[in-house]
Nucleic acid binder design. Sequence first.
DNA 1: CGCCAATCAATGCGTTGTGCATATGATGCG
DNA 2: CGCATCATATGCACAACGCATTGATTGGCG
Lengths: 171, 171
Amino acid sequence: MTALAVMDRLRARVAAGAGLGETEAAALVHVQAWPGGSVGDLAGVVGLSQPATVRLVDRLVEKGLVRREVGRNRRTVSLVLTDAGSRAADAVLLARTEALTPLLAELSPRERATLERLLGQVAAGLAEDRPGALRVCRLCDRKACTSGPGCPLQHTTRPDPTRPSGAATRR
Amino acid sequence: MTALAVMDRLRARVAAGAGLGETEAAALVHVQAWPGGSVGDLAGVVGLSQPATVRLVDRLVEKGLVRREVGRNRRTVSLVLTDAGSRAADAVLLARTEALTPLLAELSPRERATLERLLGQVAAGLAEDRPGALRVCRLCDRKACTSGPGCPLQHTTRPDPTRPSGAATRR
DNA sequence: CGCCAATCAATGCGTTGTGCATATGATGCG
DNA sequence: CGCATCATATGCACAACGCATTGATTGGCG
């Protein structure tokens, strides 16, 4: 299974480049894509329990990458990246690209396009609903999604503009 | 990244089907493919440190899935699956298939063949040497490799017959 | 208007899995 | 025969997680 090896590579690269684990990286990328989300939302995306997500946020706050702000309700927390956090998220995405590019270099441009199309088709079958799509795309570069042929998962590239950002990812 | 989601699915399925983690599953599959390997060999394949691999083997022995036998030298250990371990390895591979099949069902047979060819090409760029290939293929179904169009990584389908099995995977 | 169920975040506690450093036993070579 | 080397195993500490629970806040309903 190529997926396994690809993920190995990706994890190693992200860890080496930013000193972060997979969940931390996913959290940064997700919060960057959707600032203002709650802890519960993040838990669903990164696939951790709610308490574990609290600790995850604790770690990121301690590293100065994330800030907790007050959400609409005083019982919800609004997660935002600091400047350093935003740079870290960029670094994660850069590491992602660096891990993937040499692999795609094995293929001709035409083959690469075909592969991307087919993989997109497979990915489309992976996530029917919005939370599922968010989970799948937790390490996706949203800029790449909008600039290229478009992400095969419609729900992820931009929030529902009719809702306040904090509520867009509600489970 | 489709690879991420595919691995999520795979992990969940294996855990649900056999009650095993990713490293345990990989160990079982690898030992099934190459009985008689040493602990150090296994460490390289599953990507753990040597002590962690010892504990991993401890767990598998305690579950009655693996036996430690004496290797050629009395200082090396020869890892073999018990009957239950062999069944467990089969279960892992079955879970793997069950996780992957519905995804491939999204594609036409023609598209599927193309995807497999392209992914194989990418995988071939992932592992130049034998240990690397073993690491990549740690969850591969060897039977599928030999029956189908063939694994893109040559090193993995069968051991070097000129060497005793224990030494074939030396790092 | 006040109570109560629901919701979100946070904490206590125990477990698991891992790495680093080191110990133990076996081997081969000078 | 002694010593460097190698494979395995163990001591120890730590990081990350889940479950159960608590505390704070909110919205609904009588």
